[in-house]
Structure formats: C-alpha cells, structure tokens
Simulated scan of single mutants.
Amino acid sequence: MATIDRIREIRRTLHENPELGGEEWATSTLIQEELQKAGISFKTGFAKTGVLGVIEGGSKGGTVALRADIDALPILEKTAIDFKSKVDGKMHACGHDAHTSMLLGTAFKLQEMKDQLSGRVLLIFQPNEETSPIGGARPMMEDGLFDEFQPDVIFGQHVWPDLPVGQIGVRDKEMMGASDTLSFTITGAGGHASMPHQGKDAIVIAAEFISSLQSIVSRNVNPLESAVITIGTINGGYRYNVIADQVVLKGTVRTYSKKAKETVKRRLENLVKGFEIAYEVEIDFDYVDGYGATINTPKWAELVRGSAAQLYGDDALPVLDPSMAGEDFSRFLEKVPGAFYWLGCSKEDVEQPKPLHDPEFFFEEAALEIGVETMTKVTVNALNILKK
C-alpha cells in the first residue's frame, strides 16, 4: 500500500476514535506502533501520552524538530462523512488527526532516506494542545523532551480552512496571538426590582463595565498594534423582579506584542479599581496568562516559503494576515527558533468553508499528500542549511 494510502487510513482511524487532552492513550499507542513498524526509535512518558521519535541521519549535522498535536475537542460531530466520530461529544474538529497522520507520513519518508540525511530529526507528538493555559508543550519539555537532543530549529504545520488545498500560509513574524483568559465577579447588593435605590444592581454595573472594557483597546492600545477583549459568558440574577447582587463575567484577551498585553492588563486593573470606587461594589478580577503569541523566526519562515515554492510555485504562497487564535506551539518557539505555517485544507469551490472547532468542520484529504511533501521538503532543506 502506498504511503499516502496508509496515511489516509491512519487519519480516518484517528478521526473515528477521538480522545480529549490527557486521554490520548489509544492515539499514543497507535503512533508508537506505526513508528515501530517503520523502524523508528522513540521514547514515551512526556506529558503522559506524548511521544518523541528520533531519526538519525547517515552523517553528522544539525537537529530539526517537527511537531504534531494529537488531541481532539469536546464537540458533537455533525458531518455526514463515512468515518465520522464514533464517540459522542468528541470530535477532531481542529485537524489534529490530520496533523498526526501527516507527521507519521513525513517520518516514513525521512526514515526511507535517512542515509542521505546529515543530522537528526525529532518527531514530537504532543498531547493537550487544546487545554490552555496548561497545554502540552511545556509539560513535555518539563518531562525532559529535549534533555538528550536539543533541536536547532522546530517546525509545525496546521490545517487551515481559510486556504484551499495547495496553498501554504506562512509569515516572517506574527502567525497567531497570545490567548489569555479573564474573569470578573461583580458583587453588589440585591433587592426588590421596584426599589433599585436600596440595592447595587450588579447587572447594570456589568453592562457598563463591558462597554468600558472596549475603550481599553480603542483608546489605550497603539492603533498600529492589535488587541482584542471579548466577554464570552455572563451569569447572574435570580428572577425578573429581583435586583441581582452578583454577576460573573468570563472572557479572553488576544494580543501579539508583549507591550500591548501589558497595556491591556494594567488598564484592566485600573478599570476594576475605578468601578469599585464609583459604584461601591467589590470586583474579584482574575487574569490568567495562556499561550504566548506564535512568532516565527524570519530565517526559518523564509525556508518554509522557499520549500513550498520549490514544490508548488510562488502562486501557492498567498499574502495573509496573522490570526488571533492561540496555539501551544508558541511555547516551543519561546525556547527554539523555528516556524509555524498553515496548510490549506478546503475545497477550491467552497465559498465559506466551516471553520476550525465547528461541528461540521471538514478536512479535504487531498491536503494530506501536500502536508507530507511540504514537511519533508522543509526538513531536508533545513538539515542542508544546518550542516553548512
């Protein structure tokens, strides 16, 4: 069976049997079995279910690391594909099944040509990507992922439905945003709806507070930088005729630069203090740092760009904007130079493909071969640069 057929088979098996972060035991076992069949040595025990494969080239050189995330999401799949999830409430709605199978496909190709390689390739199968702020990258490194072999460069790819199959998206610096979480508990005083002067209406205060949050971005962050503050949930109140004594708000902050993040954080703290004084309420504020911004190293982003152009021509490299979505790969890039790039995975004629994390997200399998070819080319070219 041709390599790409096997990769497609692996991808479908993973898609039918999704496992959430921290539960990827069967996925990890499948990865180990495939590496063993290919004669690739590996180690386990990183962040529980993580796997590190190692391919030694025929001569000395640098070390290139490649990463794929392996966890699924708590989403009920609503696609009509024959191999849809067999597990209610769990789905590979972010393409991690494809990432895993494509890294295995890349590993098979590199193993076949290992005598021609100068250096070493690390194959990182990472759990828990979807569980911010903990994630899986940092726990894997804390468990000694790079203790024996320190990579000179690291690469990762992510399927991207905003791009059609055949397109490769990469930027020299910002690719994806920092993703932090917020929570505010506004505690006022309850009372009868007909006598608002006797209470401190947490709902009214919350409404004004949410509006004020948006002025932090519009009037404090440099317009040439990017920042987003979103409140995703509001919970409070008891009954239509009762003044709410407490409201809980939860949301997220997205930024690229550390400066913008610190500005937002400082202004949030000041806004909370101001509302507490102005409305005579208590506001419990919690800001949790999540994944950092995914910032590519220009040198290695250019290598990805050049590798894709060699395979598919310059037309395969669209000019694109970064995304504010968060990505655990950022923690690898904080330790090792490298690049993260997007792999087009939608059909050319689909006007509005379903986005990542959607119950109807669809991955066009024609992208599998392109993903394997691109990652293989990137690896070989990087090793050639490192040996000079």
Score class of each variant (00 low, 15 high):
Leu122Ser: 03
Ala278Cys: 12
Val380Phe: 03
Leu52His: 04
Glu348Gly: 12
Val54Ile: 04
Gly119His: 04
Lys388Ser: 13
Gly89Glu: 05
Met102Ser: 01
Glu348His: 12
Lys388Ala: 11
Leu383Cys: 10
Gly169Ile: 07
Pro127Val: 07
Gly344His: 05
Gly338His: 04
Pro196Arg: 09
Ala278Tyr: 11
Met324His: 00
Gln32Pro: 06
Phe285Trp: 01
Ile216Cys: 10
Gly136Leu: 05
Ala178Phe: 00
Lys335Asn: 12
Gly251Tyr: 00
Lys259Gly: 09
Gly237Pro: 01
Lys259Asp: 13
Ala278Leu: 10
Gly119Asp: 07
Leu35Asp: 03
Ala193Met: 09
Lys84Ala: 14
Ile186Asp: 01
Tyr238Trp: 14
Glu302His: 10
Ala309Trp: 11
Tyr341Asn: 06
Asp286Met: 11
Glu148Asp: 13
Lys299Cys: 05
Ile385Arg: 14
Ala308Ile: 00
Phe340Gln: 07
Arg267Gln: 15
Ile203Asp: 07
Thr49Lys: 02
Leu14Asn: 03
Lys78Ser: 10
Thr100Cys: 05
Pro318Met: 08
Glu148Val: 09
Asp82Pro: 12
Pro151Trp: 01
Val204Ala: 12
Val87Gly: 05
Ala47Phe: 04
Lys84Met: 12
Glu369Gly: 09
Ala325Gly: 14
Leu52Tyr: 03
Ala207Met: 08
Tyr341Cys: 09
Met113His: 10
Leu317Lys: 07
Glu276Tyr: 03
Asp284Val: 10
Phe275Lys: 00
Pro139Val: 08
Lys261Phe: 10
Gly371His: 12
Glu348Ile: 08
Ser28Asn: 10
Thr181Ile: 02
Gln126Glu: 09
Lys354Cys: 08
Thr44Val: 11
Val153Ile: 02
Lys259Gln: 15
Ser183Val: 02
Ala301Pro: 06
